[in-house]
């Protein structure tokens, strides 16, 4: 339930931002300060608030994070969206570090190799830890981790290595445990790591996506995004082998761990295009998903914008405006059944 709720909240935020950006709506001021009741299950379950805004929580309520009581009224202490669960009123801030949930796909960077575990930066309040016992060994070996493995930990992941992983557990002291116990997780090679605001990436069915422009992306829920060129030929081969019935869970070959692909200028340009599109979306606080990324790329192609010009301010704002209009038109259609 929490996941779907947050998705709605994010879509909502995006639409409101669009509205306040173009000014066709009554404007953000009226929207934020207008009298409105927040009750569990009301038809407007989320709204934007600024610090100091009255949350209109009448009767009995429980103060949650991001709120405080002033003159007997419950008041927001952060800029964000209001969430009410029964009588608990919380404000979830826009700009915050990543708040992990079990099962999230994250992209991180190894900070330190400690005894029997790696400390990984995943943009959360604390560094996450990845236990030696929570990784897949090369070639998918199934065995107990030995003392030698412990000495040899840098061979798996060294400091500075970008990795993808899943949040396995959030312990009672709020420390985060990751695992890479699947073939799709592990060290990332041959690509670039981007950092965006975690609130722009919604939890979705798929975080490993192939963008239409020939780039594969890992959209980490924590706001780290890994982009790598996606070779069209090898992809076809993979599909064939899949169809031939080989398990997708088959043990990894040694090659995939070691060999860097040789990448041509054209592939670099594709990745650069995706990167600039994502950063453009991030700068304008538009939710980042395959749809919005490809919309930006299409728009750029239509307007004849060069890849390197996508980072220019005036170009970026022009493109972001059109993309926002398109997205909000689409989200109006998409959101209605979700709310009903």
């Amino acid at each position: 339930m929490a996941a779907s709720e947050s998705r709605v909240a994010r879509a909502h935020v995006a639409r409101l931002e669009h509205v306040s950006g173009t000014g066709s709506y009554a404007g953000p001021g009226t929207l934020l300060l207008g009298k409105r009741r927040y009750e569990g299950g009301s038809e407007e379950p989320h709204d934007l608030v600024l610090p100091g805004n009255d949350l209109f929580a009448d009767g009995t309520y429980v103060r949650g994070h991001g709120t405080h009581v002033r003159n007997g009224r419950l008041v927001s202490s952060q800029a964000g969206t209001v969430l009410t669960v029964n009588r608990l009123v919380t404000v979830r801030p826009f700009r915050s570090r990543y708040v992990p949930e079990v099962g999230d796909v994250v992209v991180g960077r190894v900070l330190q190799v400690a005894g029997k575990r790696w400390l990984v930066d995943i943009n959360a309040v604390q560094e996450a830890s990845l236990l030696l016992s929570a990784i897949t060994l090369p070639l998918g070996e199934q065995r107990k981790r030995t003392y030698e493995d412990e000495l040899n930990m840098r061979a798996f992941f060294a400091e500075g290595d970008p990795i993808s992983a899943e949040v396995q557990e959030i312990r009672s002291d709020a420390s985060i445990a990751l695992h890479t116990r699947s073939n799709k997780f592990g060290a990332l090679r041959n690509g670039v790591l981007l950092q965006v605001s975690p609130s722009l990436i919604a939890r979705a069915k798929k975080h490993y996506v192939r963008l239409s422009l020939g780039v594969s992306a890992i959209l980490g829920t924590n706001g780290y995004i890994w982009l790598s060129p996606h070779d069209l030929e090898t992809a076809q081969n993979e599909d064939k082998t899949k169809k031939a019935g080989s398990r997708s869970d088959a043990p990894l070959s040694e090659e995939r761990y070691i060999t860097p692909l040789s990448v041509g200028p054209e592939a670099h340009l594709r990745v650069a295009r995706a990167r600039n599109a994502i950063l453009l979306l991030n700068a304008r606080s538009i939710p980042i998903d395959p749809v919005s990324i490809s919309l930006v790329c299409e728009e750029c192609a239509r307007q004849g914008v060069d890849v390197k010009d996508m980072t220019r301010r005036e170009v970026a704002s022009r493109i972001a405006d059109t993309v926002q209009t398109q997205l909000s038109a689409a989200s109006h259609l998409a959101e209605r059944p979700l709310r009903a």
Binding site: A158, G160, D161, P162, A187, L188, R189, N190, G191, V192, L193, P260, S262, V263, G264, P265, H268, L269, V271, A272, R273, R275, N276, D306, V307, K308, M310, T311
Partner: peptide
């Protein structure tokens, strides 16, 4: 190291990471 390789290979190919 792998990211550095990627950056360097891009520069060798004449395309930097931001295009």
């Amino acid at each position: 190291a792998s990211e550095q390789d990627y950056y360097v290979s891009g520069i060798r190919a004449g395309v930097r990471v931001d295009g």
